[in-house]
Design a protein around this nucleic acid. Sequence first.
DNA 1: CTGAAAGCGCTAACAC
DNA 2: GTGTTAGCGCTTTCAG
Lengths: 341, 341
Amino acid sequence: MIEPACAPATRTAPVKITDVAAAAGVAPMTVSRVINTPDRVSPETTARVREAIDRLGYVPNLIAGGLSSRKSRMVAAIVPTIAHPMFASVVQSFSASMRHAGYQVMLSISGYEDPDDEALFRALLGRRPDALLITGSGYSPAALQMLIEAHIPVVEIWDVSSRPIDMLIGFDHAQVGAEVAAFLRAKGHDRFALLAAGDSRALARARGFTEAVAKTGGTIVLDRVVPAPSTIAAGREGMRALLPFLDQRCAIFCSSDLMAFGVVTEARMQGVPVPDHLAVCGFGNFELSAMSEPPITTVNLEGAGTGRSAAAFLLRRLAGEGPRDSDRVQVPFRIIERATT
Amino acid sequence: MIEPACAPATRTAPVKITDVAAAAGVAPMTVSRVINTPDRVSPETTARVREAIDRLGYVPNLIAGGLSSRKSRMVAAIVPTIAHPMFASVVQSFSASMRHAGYQVMLSISGYEDPDDEALFRALLGRRPDALLITGSGYSPAALQMLIEAHIPVVEIWDVSSRPIDMLIGFDHAQVGAEVAAFLRAKGHDRFALLAAGDSRALARARGFTEAVAKTGGTIVLDRVVPAPSTIAAGREGMRALLPFLDQRCAIFCSSDLMAFGVVTEARMQGVPVPDHLAVCGFGNFELSAMSEPPITTVNLEGAGTGRSAAAFLLRRLAGEGPRDSDRVQVPFRIIERATT
DNA sequence: CTGAAAGCGCTAACAC
DNA sequence: GTGTTAGCGCTTTCAG
C-alpha cells in the first residue's frame, strides 16, 4: 500500500516563510538565512529548518524577497525574432549563462518594426529587471531615456551604435558589406546584385556593399529589398528576378544564409551554374549553408559567443564592478569561403 | 539651442507612487486608480495625475503591485530548445499573445535531458507566475507535484500525456509514426529505415513507426538514434550509414525536416535517386522542406497555432473561468506529400 | 548565532 | 470620487 508523500491538498493557501518558521520553531529571519546565507546558521538549526521546508514543500516567494532586497534576479532581453538561428542561439546561450548565475530571463520578441517601444520598455522595466539586453539600435529617444533612468546595466548586441547607452557587443554591418564586396571584387567580379531584408541592419550591410562596389568601379545590376525577416522563398524569388541580368557573370550578396540557400536552389533549377556564372554569398553561417550542396560562402558571427559575452558583461556589473573601457567590444566576423564563390 | 527634456540625473532614486501622488496633490491610491481603473477617477484628477506621471517619468513597480494584488502578470514557459523552427514559432506566437494581454513571458530553455527539473521549477514558481506552459512529459513526479501545489493554470503542449496536470494541447507522437508508416506502406514500400533524435517524443514517433511497420509485415533495415537535437549533419551521416542497405528500394522516416534535408542532400551526392530508390519523409514542415529541391514530404503541425491556443487556454483561466472538457485538445497533424515519396 | 522591528512600493477593503 | 488603513511575504537593520 503506497501512501502519498504529502497529505491531500486540504490546505490551498500557499505556504510562506512564517509557516516554515513556526513548523521549525524559529523566527522567519532564521528561515531566510538558511536559504540565503546558510553559513550564518548553526548546523542543527539548519537541519531543522530544511526538514520543515521539505515537509511543507515551501517555495520561497522571490517576488516578495525582491521587493524587500531591491533585487529581482531577473533580466530582460529584447530580440527582434527567435525564428532566425542567429538570434535563437544568442538567446539560448544568454539565458543558459544567466540561469546558471541564478537569473531568470524575461524574453520580449519585438518584431522588426516596433510600433511602440516605450510601451514595451515600460512593461519590462516595470518588472524591475536587474539588467537588460537589447538588440541593435532603432529605438526612439524617449524609450532610450527610460533605459537610462532605470539605472541598470544595459548591454546592446548585434550592432555598433553611434551612442551606446552602456555596454556593447556588436559589429559594423556596413563594414561587413564592404568586406564582402572587396572579397568578391578580388575574385574578379564586377557585376553585383543585392538581396536584402528590410530591417535596418540588413540595409546597413547592403549600403556598405553598394558603396564599396561603387568605389571600386563595379556595377550593381539588381538591388532588391524584401520585408524582414528573410526567408528561403525570398531567395528563390530574388533569383528569378535576377535572371534577366544574367547574360553576364554576376555575384550576389544576400542578407542571410536562408536567402542565399534560396538563390542557390533556384539557380540550380534554372540551370545557372554556381559559382561559375553566379557567385553567391550569404550571411550568418547557419548550419544550412555549411551542410547544403554546394556549401555556401557566408559571413560567420559568433551568436552563442555573443550571448555568453553579453551575460558575462551583465554579471560582472551585477557583481558590483564598475564600467570599463572594454565594455564596448567589436564582435569579430569573417568570411567563410565555400563552394558558391 | 536644444534643451534636454529632463533635468540631468541629479536624482538617482527611482520615482515611486508617493512621489507622483505628492506632485499631483492626491493620495497614492488615486494614482493607482488612474493607472489601473481610470474610469473610477474624475477626468480633472486623471489629467493632473497623468501630467505628474509623465513629468516625473514614473514607471510603476509591478513587482510591488503584484505582491499586493497577488498577481504577477507573468507567465513561465519551458521549452527544450528554441533552435528548432517548431518551438521557436510556438514561443513566438505564445509570447505575442500573452504580451498582447499584458503578460510577460519568463522563458526557460530546458535542454533535452534535464538534470534537475525540481530546481528549474523552483526558480520559476518562486517568481510566482500566474500560469505556466510546459513542453511534453518526462518530468519527475516530485517536480510535477510542485506544479500541482502551485495552484496555477498549467498547459502542456506538444505531447499527449497519460496524466495531464491540467490543460493540454498536443498529439500522439506514436500515432504520427504509425500514420507515416501506413502512408509509406500504401505507396508500396516494404523496407524501411528510421533516423531519430534521442529525445522522448522523437523516440515515441520512431516506436509508433516501427510497430506499424512490423504489424503490416514490413522490415526495418536501419534504426538509428542520434543525440537530440536533430541536425542536417545527422541526416547526412544517417544517409551514409544507410548506403549498405540500399541494394533494394527503401523508405526512411526522419524525426525532423532538418534530418530529412540532410538525407536528401547526401542521397543526391551519392547518386541515390529520390524518391525512386529512396523515399524520404521528414517531420515538422519547416520552410526548408517546402522550399528545397526536391521539396520534401513531411508531417505538418501548427506550431504558431499551438502557441496561440496555449495562450488562449491560459488567458481564459486567468479571466476566472473554470476547467472544461475542451481543455484537452489533440492538435491535428497531417502528412504533406511532396516530391520525396 | 538568533530574533524583533521596520519597511520595500503597491493595492484590497473599507470609510467618507 | 477620493482618502485611509492595513497588509502582501520577504529582507534589512539593529539588538541581543
